[in-house]
Design a binder for these strands. Structure first.
Length: 403
DNA sequence: TCTGGGGTCCTAGGACCC
DNA sequence: TCTGGGGTCCTAGGACCC
């Protein structure tokens, strides 16, 4: 979907069309404030001048989406709000409305499903679709079906999307970026040399910032540069698995199927504080947040019908370093109190002497409620999986019995 | 005044089992 | 008198994606 979060907001506030708008940041319920002020007007008639400007934004957070007008200024997703404010001070800011976004996410996915049922979910604004067995799916290399899907989504939602059609997921993903927004691009296997090789290595889904830096140090900048290497050389430099994959990817080879169903592996909640907190000085505040996170994870699990066995915490310190601790218990649970108890044990094993920026709680090793695997009675006699392992508090930290 | 939140997958060492 | 080989599970960290 094109600029999905922003586009969803523009449906409500069409008067902002064409303007530089960014979505993100917001603990502040910006649009609620505005709607209260203009309660007598329909949303679409609230003047654009009433919306807050990026330069007046104070607080932590990143941009999740920028309209194409804002992108002209170099503002993009994942950019810190403060940095974005420098690049484009007069952009309007709106907070993410997750409920609205999820509503349109369901709507566009169900629209596709009616036309082409083999779909892989790739998050709120993206899917892979298998055209292979869709009637007419091969006409003009898939372009006809892509056009049909694009039109159906626009009719149903008013939103635009970009579609890449290719022999596999790897190339389709790259192709989808060729004609944004509202574009269609068909790429054949034999186009790899001309259309894929000139692209930056970063365009491969799976090559991120770290791999890009390492490749640059080896004087590899384009996908073609990777394709020109000996596979063994790539394996020597990037490892057996990643090196071999990278070589195949550079040649446009990918045999992953479109996966229509999958079970969740973990569920988590985390929050970045408005200001950095200290375990001792801000104990009460931190304790309340911690309990809250556990309650939220527990209710997520219950709502979706899962229980979990591994409970863990995540901290981000003020220097952005991350620490995680987890512990696997003998039975499955979705109980907030129990999650809090075990997560509290985990907290005793990290350094709480430094200022914290983020706290998170995670439950993993999930099983569906009622499944055979989950049907272990809590408290029933069972062998501990590692009878001799004692989760020792880290030296020097154990005296901080805060939670 | 830097840098969200919710995920997946991989690696690597140690414990433990047969 | 130097000490296997294969396998699983647990834990911590890190890269990457949307």
């Amino acid at each position: 979907m094109d600029a999905f979060f922003a586009s969803v907001e523009l449906l409500r506030y069409p008067q902002l069309k064409g303007l530089a708008v960014v979505i993100g940041g917001g603990r502040r319920k910006v649009d609620e404030m505005i709607r209260e002020r203009f309660a007598d007007l329909p949303l679409s008639e609230i003047p654009a001048s009433a919306f807050p400007l990026l330069k007046d934004y104070v607080g932590r957070g990143v941009i999740t989406t920028a309209t194409y007008a804002a992108r002209q200024f170099g503002v993009g997703s994942a950019m810190g709000m403060m940095k974005a404010a420098k690049l484009c001070p007069h952009a309007l800011v709106l907070p993410v409305d997750f409920e609205e976004v999820r509503k349109y996410s369901r709507l566009f996915k169900s629209t596709i499903a009616e036309i082409a049922p083999v779909i892989e979910d790739r998050g709120v604004d993206e899917v892979y679709i298998d055209f292979t067995d869709v009637p007419g799916g091969q006409r003009e290399g898939g372009r006809v079906l892509a056009r049909l899907i694009q039109r159906a989504i626009h009719e149903r939602t008013g939103l635009t999307c970009s579609i890449g059609v290719a022999p596999n997921k790897l190339i389709a993903k790259m192709a989808s970026e060729f004609n944004k927004p509202n574009g269609i691009s068909v790429v054949y296997q034999e186009d790899v040399q001309t259309k894929i090789w000139p692209l930056a290595v970063r365009k491969i889904n799976g090559i991120g910032p770290k791999a890009e830096i390492k490749l640059a140090k080896l004087h590899l900048h384009t996908i073609g540069d990777i394709a020109a290497q000996e596979p063994q050389w790539l394996i020597d430099n990037f490892g057996k698995s990643y090196g071999a994959w990278m070589y195949e990817a550079a040649w446009g080879r990918d045999d992953r199927p479109v996966v229509t169903e999958s079970e969740p592996v973990s569920m988590s909640r985390e929050t970045t504080f408005d200001r950095d907190l200290h375990a001792v000085r801000d104990r009460a505040e931190l304790g309340a947040i911690f309990t809250d996170l556990c309650t939220q994870v527990a209710s997520d699990l219950k709502r979706k019908g899962y229980v979990g066995k591994t409970i863990g915490i995540k901290l981000r310190y003020d220097d952005f370093k991350i620490a995680t601790r987890d512990q696997t218990i003998e039975h499955f649970t979705a109980d907030a109190k129990e999650i809090r108890r075990v997560a509290g044990q985990c907290l005793k094993r990290v350094d709480l002497g430094r200022k914290l920026r983020l706290l998170g709680v995670r439950v993993g090793k999930l099983a569906k409620v009622g499944s055979a695997e989950a049907a272990v009675v809590p408290g029933a006699a069972s062998q501990p999986s590692h009878p001799h392992r004692v989760e020792e508090p880290a030296p020097g930290y154990g005296t901080l019995d805060l939670f």
